[in-house]
Amino acid sequence: MADTYLQVIFWAFFALMAIAGIRVVTTRNVIHAALYLVATLLGAASMYVLLYAEFVAWVQVLVYVGAVVVLMLFGLMLTRAPIGSANFDNNQRLVGAVCAGLLFAVTSFIMVGAFEGQEIDFTGTEGTKVQSIGEAIFSIYVLPFEIVSVLLLAALVGAVVISRRDEGRVDS
């Protein structure tokens, strides 16, 4: 019975993510595309909640919706590039649609065939505890964790270095 409710919620968010995702790649306004991406990312966060992965869900909301999309919007505002009404698609639209459709057909066919009958059992689970995630990160995966820290630092410094104006150069 509870599974039926879960499935109804799942398909509702599936529809939301599918519509919003398609709007991300078809809308004519870049700001709208970023806001539809917010809807898709929140749908993904709700999927994580549905899968009892609350910590990943909140990291998704904080990092993606809170930081990445805001960064995108800042990038759009800083570039002052055309944001609407122009045509942002190139002439590969048909090829792209055929490729994406084929990819979807093949991957979903293989995935459904390979994992047929495998169920996610939600009965009696309380979800993954943050404690066990933390223990995994700081014991087995401590080296990747440190590497990711250094990567983030390098990306931060790199972004600052790339995007700052050169001193002493006259900018037109």
Partner: peptide
């Protein structure tokens, strides 16, 4: 709940992303 539902959702999102990378001009 079958795990395949989530895999189909993920395949759909990935295909939409592939279409966007192929067909969009704005960086």
């Amino acid at each position: 709940m079958p795990v395949a539902y989530f895999l189909v959702l993920s395949a759909l999102l990935f295909s939409i992303g592939v279409y966007g990378v192929l067909a969009r001009q704005h960086a």
